Computed example of a mutant assay.
Amino acid sequence: MIRACDLADLPEGESVRVLGHVPIAVFHTEGQLYAIDDTCTHQDASLSDGWLEGCFVECPLHEASFDLRNGMPTCLPAKRPVRTYPVVVTDGVIYVDTTNIREGVA
């Protein structure tokens, strides 16, 4: 598990980029926490810098969109999913479980 941030430091509707083996974006939306690979599969852009709407994030570069729940792209130009990761909150700290990677599936 890698530490993302304190839960209090990630308000609803915001995201944080976590650097590790691969960059991971953690999103707080609709009362849930989601973690996905931070790099868009279409072109090298940080999804944590994208636009968050509900359970979807839009890439800031070419407007590809991904479902945070399963990593699947929802529109072109992205065709490949991003990986998702379980998120755990312990004692007010957000952790990402990088040992339990989930490949995007519908």
Rank of each mutant, 00 (worst) to 15 (best):
W51F: 14
P81I: 00
F27Y: 15
D44Q: 13
S48Q: 03
C75V: 07
D6I: 10
N100G: 08
R83W: 01
R17S: 06
A25Y: 01
Y85E: 13
V89W: 06
T98N: 07
I36M: 08
N70W: 00
P60G: 03
T41Y: 08
M1N: 12
V88C: 08
V96D: 00
K79Q: 14
H28K: 09
L52P: 13
T90W: 10
A78E: 02
C75E: 13
Q43G: 10
A8S: 14
C59I: 03
D49H: 12
G20Y: 03
G50R: 11
N100T: 15
G20K: 06
P73R: 08
G71V: 02
G13T: 04
N70I: 00
V22I: 06
G92C: 13
G104D: 02
A64M: 05
Y34A: 02
I24T: 03
A8Y: 03
P73W: 02
G31E: 06
N100F: 01
L10E: 10
A35D: 05
R80F: 00
I36V: 15
L47N: 03
G71K: 01
P86T: 10
E12M: 11
I101A: 13
P60L: 05
Y34C: 02
R102S: 09
D67N: 14
L10G: 11
R80G: 00
T74G: 14
G92S: 14
K79E: 15
D91W: 04
G54Q: 09
C59T: 02
V89Q: 13
D38K: 04
Q32C: 11
D91H: 09
G50H: 03
V105L: 12
E30S: 15
C75G: 12
G31S: 12
L76N: 09
V87Y: 10
Y95E: 10
A35W: 00
C5Y: 05
V93R: 05
